[in-house]
């Protein structure tokens, strides 16, 4: 099942790497990139009805709107079975994990760097669960 994928990160290198790797996946290659939470949120709102499923690779620390604020906004309109969020951080902090668990959208934490085999695992887990 194809998904509409969003990669949200203020680090252009991360975005560039994600772009290359997502292009190699079967179901995550329909892809839009954003450098802050607000742009991603607006896109998601706009496109919400046009796609069945969304996958969001979300950085936590970003300018303008960070990952947490993005998740808070998401609560107001999105459904958990329609949007799956993967929080992407360079180091996984226990307090972040606990905070992430409060959101129904958050499926998992991914520790950077994210390699292609990890994205394939994500893809598989999504297909198993949806």
């Amino acid at each position: 099942m194809p998904y509409h994928t969003l990669a949200v990160d203020d680090d252009p290198i991360f975005i560039m790497l994600m772009e290359r790797m997502l292009g190699k996946t079967d179901d995550l290659s329909d892809f839009s990139k954003f450098e802050n939470g607000l742009d991603a949120l607006n896109h998601l709102k706009q496109e919400y009805m046009s796609h069945d499923k969304f996958v969001v690779f979300l950085d936590i620390n970003m300018p303008i709107m960070d990952g947490w604020e993005f998740l808070d906004e998401l609560e107001s309109f999105a459904e958990a079975d329609k949007v799956s969020v993967f929080l992407c951080t360079s180091s996984v902090d226990d307090s972040d994990v606990n905070r992430g668990k409060q959101y129904k959208f958050v499926r998992d934490f991914l520790s950077k760097p994210i390699y292609l085999n990890k994205l394939r695992e994500v893809e598989k887990s999504l297909n198993d669960n949806f």
Binding site: I13, L17, S90, S91, D93, S111, K112, P113, I114
Partner: peptide, 15 residues
Amino acid sequence: QSHIVRAPLARLMGL
């Protein structure tokens, strides 16, 4: 060291 240093390191590894 765990949070800030890991960011450029993760980028390096990714690249």
